[in-house]
Amino acid sequence: MTLKERLISYGLPALALLALFLVWEWAVYQFKIPRFILPAPSVVARSLWQWRSAILGHAAQTLYTTLVGFGIAVGFGLLLGWLVGFSALLYKAVYPILIGFNSIPKVAIVPVLVIWFGIGTVPAVITAFLISFFPIVVNVATGLATLEPELQDVLRSLGAGKLQIFRKVGLPRTLPYFFASMKVAVTLAFVGSVISETVASNKGVGYLMIAASSRFDVPLVFAGLLVIATLGILLYALFAILEGRLTSWAYRR
């Protein structure tokens, strides 16, 4: 990347973010919005600093449940995606169930999870998993199902078996689809964790926000939101970088 490209790809988003905060700050003072409705960014920042050690602990908990749930989703999603993409029959059989399952709002499942596992870490992990595996399965399955017969023929004409065809063509071919879905899935996993924490936990950013809002400490609620958004962006960026490294061929770079 040239310096100019670098400036654009990092500087521009930073500038936009700064502008957003400035407008927000200005609007709050201009229209005299009370802080229990919408706190100004400077107030949120102060709250963030004041509660930093508590926030850090809760953020670590949320990150932990998110990553564990997401990790399980990646493993499970890859496996199911490959299976479903490999066999047209399985695809037909399983797809409606997946769609149906994905339509269920995950908040509705949390109470059930609490009955089964109690409150805390386990339901958060499971919710993160449940909400994030679907895009992975669908993407990986699509990648495999749309594998060009010509590429398979190249391998078949060398006498390669099904497993070898999968390893040499199917797997690399699904990687771009997989990474694209990972970026979406990791942000979804955050949503899952936080949902579960707001309903059934005494740890995590979700819990922190619920507790703060019951005390009408709206600046702290917004601090929690900011933390989640930041974590989401960081993980998204991480997977975007990985994607760029591992599947540059798909984007012809």
């Binding site: 023929d153 190249v154 078949r156 004409s157 060398l158 063509v169 071919r173 061929w249 798909a250």
Partner: peptide
């Protein structure tokens, strides 16, 4: 499919990765 043949297809079909 046979293992003892080498085939150059009409479209080059190189693996893009």
């Amino acid at each position: 499919p046979l293992k003892i043949v080498g085939m150059a297809f009409q479209n080059p079909t190189l693996l893009p990765w």
